[in-house]
């Protein structure tokens, strides 16, 4: 039990659980911001997988770290854009419920 930190499988399972929580939140949350939070969980599950393979298997242990840094940069850009979209949507509809945004529905 105390040697878990040295095993690849531990990190893979944690990454899978975080990914599952993210999907759970994406389906369950009825508002855009809740879905954004869940999407961050999905990204961080993927990052944990990259870092685990990078530490245990990869011949060049910088590649996974750099990939995780790029994921962080993309996540930051995504959060900024999603926030401004949420604000624009809220200004037009006075709501950020996903059920209310039906203007493009045929």
């Amino acid at each position: 039990m105390l040697t878990l930190s040295g095993q690849l499988n531990t990190y893979l399972v944690i990454g899978a659980i975080l990914f599952g929580f993210g999907i759970f939140g994406l389906v369950r949350r009825p508002s855009l911001i809740g879905m954004l939070i869940a999407a961050e969980l999905v990204l961080s599950g993927a990052s944990i997988n990259f870092m685990a393979f990078n530490h245990f298997l990869a011949p060049d242990p910088t590649v996974g770290q750099i990939f995780t840094l790029f994921i962080m940069a993309i996540a930051a850009a995504e959060a900024a854009i999603a926030m401004s979209i949420v604000i624009a949507v809220y200004r037009n509809y006075k709501s950020i419920e996903t059920d209310d945004l039906t203007e493009l529905k045929g």
């Binding site: 990914f19 599952g20 929580f21 993210g22 939140g25 389906v27």
Partner: peptide, 8 residues
Amino acid sequence: GGAIAYGL
């Protein structure tokens, strides 16, 4: 979520 986490 449970199915995807378990599968992965």
